[in-house]
Structure formats: C-alpha cells, structure tokens
Amino acid sequence: MSTAPLPDLVKTVIVPARPDRAFAVFVEEVGAWWPLAGFSVGGASSSVAFERDPDGRATHLVETLADRGTAVWGAVTRWDPPHALAFTWHPGERADAATRVEVTFTPDGDATAVVLTHSGWEARADGEGARTRYDTGWELVLKPFAEHAGSSR
C-alpha cells in the first residue's frame, strides 16, 4: 500500500445539457455511454448500471457479465440529484482497496460543468501507477458521456 497521499485527479467536461439532464444521463443511461470494451471487468459483452433501492436512490454501480455474474464497481456514498454523486471505486479489485469518485454537476450557461474528482489513491498498493492510468482513462470515459448527454436532449 502507498503511504503518502497522492493528489486528487480532477477531470472536467462541459456537457451541452442542463444539470438535471446531465445527472440523469450519468446515472440512468450509464449503460448506453460507458465504453465497456476498454473499461470494464468483462469487456464489451457486459452491461453496467447503477442499482437502485425502492426509493430510487442509487446504491451500487454494478457490471453484469456475459455469464450473468456480476462485478460490483463501487457503492454510492453520496446521492444529491442533480448536484452530486459519489461512490467508492474498485472495479475488478477488492472492496478494501477502493478509491473514491465524486461527480458534481454545476450550471454553466445552457450547459453543465461536470467535474469528476478521483481520490484515495493510498488505498491501493499501486496507487501512483493507478492514478497515472486513470488520468487518461477518465478522459476516455467522460468523452462518450458528454457526447451522449448532448445528443439525447
């Protein structure tokens, strides 16, 4: 495990939709825009969705594999629609090695500034390497999100 805290990784994307729509696309349509071929446990034949409790609050981000098995990517720790969402993050890893992801949705004219902050790298044995990989990875994930949110208005 890393002992020295590593800086948070922060990524911002401007989405051509209002915050309520951007939040809904992020949560409700994650399976339509998430690039599973390159960023998943099971590959392109999988699906991903936020599981919900009976009140509609997201509880977990879960990938369903082709064999119908599941891989929990994380547990929702903050649910504040349409302003923010936070969750632990450990796709393909043990839950005790989870990092943290927070996504905020702030009005920016007719658009929304979506800021993703990934922190808690010290929980991982490969914290510095993981942070480096996610620096590019989150950009490749957020791009299709922004495109999908803009085209599904």
Results as ranks from 00 to 15, higher is better:
Ala37Gly: 13
Thr106Ile: 07
His60Asn: 02
Gly31Arg: 00
Trp121Leu: 11
Ala149Arg: 08
Ala86Met: 12
Val103His: 03
Trp121Tyr: 03
Ile14His: 04
Gly129Phe: 15
Val10Pro: 15
Leu65Asp: 01
Gly42Pro: 10
Thr104Tyr: 05
Ala149Pro: 15
Glu139Gln: 11
Ser45Gln: 09
Pro144Ile: 13
Arg153Phe: 15
Ser45Thr: 12
Thr104Val: 14
Ile14Asp: 08
Gly31Cys: 04
Pro144Cys: 06
Leu6Phe: 03
Asp8Met: 09
Phe105Val: 11
Ala97Gln: 11
Asp135Thr: 15
Gly109Met: 05
Phe23Trp: 09
Gly92Phe: 03
Ala71Ile: 08
Phe50Ile: 10
Ala98Thr: 09
Pro82Arg: 03
Thr70Trp: 00
Gly137Lys: 06
Ala84Cys: 09
Ala71Trp: 04
Ala37Cys: 05
Ala37Arg: 03
Trp79Tyr: 12
Arg21Gly: 00
Val101Gln: 00
Val27Gln: 01
Asp53Thr: 10
His118Arg: 08
Pro144Asn: 06
His90Pro: 02
Gly120Trp: 06
Val115Phe: 01
Leu9Ser: 09
Val41Gly: 02
Gly31Pro: 09
Asp126Thr: 10
Ala84Leu: 10
Asp110Met: 04
Phe145Lys: 01
Gly38Phe: 13
Gly69Asp: 02
Ser46Trp: 04
Ala125Gly: 14
Asp135Lys: 10
Ala95Glu: 14
Gly129Met: 07
Glu122His: 13
Trp89Gly: 12
Glu93Leu: 14
Glu93Asn: 12
Val30Cys: 08
Val101Lys: 01
Asp8Ala: 15
Lys143Arg: 13
Thr112Phe: 07
Glu51Leu: 07
Val115Gln: 04
Pro7Met: 00
Arg21Pro: 00
Thr106Leu: 09
Pro19Met: 13
Leu6Asp: 07
Pro7His: 00
Ser47Glu: 08
Arg100Gln: 15
Thr59Ser: 03
Gly38Val: 15
Phe26Ile: 13
Asp108Ala: 11
Thr70Ser: 05
Leu142Lys: 11
Thr112Cys: 03
Arg52Trp: 04
Phe39Ser: 03
Trp121Ser: 12
Thr99Val: 08
Glu29Phe: 11
Pro16His: 14
Ala49Glu: 09
Glu29Arg: 14
Leu65Glu: 02
Thr136Asn: 03
Val25Glu: 00
Ala44Lys: 03
Trp34His: 03
Glu147Tyr: 13
Val101Ile: 15
Ala113Phe: 00
Phe23Pro: 10
Glu128His: 07
Val30Ala: 02
Trp34Leu: 03
Val25Ile: 15
